[in-house]
Amino acid sequence: MSHTCTKVTVRQRAIRNNRISLYLDYYPAVRNPETMQMSRREYLGIYIYAHPKNEMEREFNNDMLNKAEAIRCIRVQSLINEEFGFLDKTKQKADFLAYFKKMCRNKDQKWQFVYQHFYNFVKGQCTFGDVNVDLCKKFREYLLNVKQLKHSNRSISLNSASGYYSTFRGLLKIAYRDKWFRENINDYLDKIEPQDVKKEYLTLDEVKQLAATPCDIPVLKAASLFACLTGLRISDILNLQWEDFTIAPDQGYCLRIRTQKTQTEATLPISYEAYELCGTPGTGKVFKDLKRSMINYPLKNWLKKAGITKSITFHCFRHSYAVIQISLGTDIYTVSKMLTHKNVSTTQIYADLVNSKKRETANKISLK
């Protein structure tokens, strides 16, 4: 078997203010772990004087060139290890927690919770070399018994533990793709099986009942009814911008958004009634005064005032949208697209809640 190793060379590029920027030139090109694109250049953030004027500046240049050469040697070693399948000690010593935290930046809030639980689990220190099957299995057991971050007297639910561990395994998959691990650790891990839970939702009559009930916080009422009419998650409603609205070819209103949870690009038609709930068009956020704290006790008080005794959370408005649409005859594929589900099987749960065939089957056997 023949191997062609990438050649790495320190090169210089003249920039402003009588300085030279040092960078590494890879030939052939290598994949950049940040962008996943093939690249030949890696700028080091190291600069030297283009025309050193004295001994001090010449010494500085030599010192910086030596640092660049040291980095070049480390990169060559890493590339050889990758090429020939050896363990890359440089990657093994890298900070896994820093990588985890960086991955959280463009993810939803659940990633932050998982990061904090893992941070607590490893007591604030963990390298890539520390992450192995045994550690991941112990973290699985930890999640099954750990207390909530905000309420230290309550354990997290089984379904929360399942979702957190699924997110953590997703991180491992990304790290494997980025070549931080030599094998996919997920192949040796069992997921935490979630419990089936009753999905609460409002009927169309109950939504109308809620709409007719005054709310002490107008923006909460508007955002809640908007969720019932669109199926959007609270994270997307909180981040909704006036710039996200557009006029479709049929002259109706649409939203063009990237969902917070799944990072899905979507164009979603909305009704004029839903658009009216947003108030006077402007710039920036649509529901500017909406806070996450409002969807707890203030929401419960409003539901109670409306005479609704079901255990309804803000996310239940999304369930309500799906169930109402399906009960009114909207096909499951369209509902799935409107909810930005990646798989129709996820939407099938709502179809099961209003399956008329099940009702027909239940009424077929009679003792009268």
Rank of each mutant, 00 (worst) to 15 (best):
A274C: 06
Y49Q: 09
I308Y: 15
Y23H: 09
T334V: 10
L189K: 10
Y142E: 09
Q77D: 06
K364T: 10
T246Q: 07
I80P: 00
C136A: 15
K107Y: 02
A222Q: 11
Y272T: 03
N355L: 01
D108W: 11
L328K: 14
E42G: 02
T259E: 00
Y188E: 14
Q195V: 02
I308N: 12
C254A: 11
F128R: 12
F121H: 03
Y297T: 01
V286H: 05
C73T: 11
F317K: 05
K137H: 06
R16M: 02
L149I: 11
K199Q: 15
N296P: 00
K89D: 13
K67E: 14
N18E: 13
K304M: 11
N18V: 03
T35K: 05
S155K: 12
F60W: 12
F287M: 15
N186E: 07
G307Y: 04
S356T: 02
Q195D: 12
M294Q: 08
N159A: 13
N184K: 02
V207W: 06
N66K: 13
C316I: 11
N106S: 14
L204I: 08
S162V: 11
A98F: 04
Y142C: 13
L79Y: 05
G307M: 05
I156W: 10
L171S: 11
L22Y: 12
R16I: 00
L353A: 07
T280N: 13
L229K: 03
S2D: 12
F113M: 03
Y176E: 13
I48E: 08
V207F: 05
S356G: 01
D134S: 03
Y165P: 08
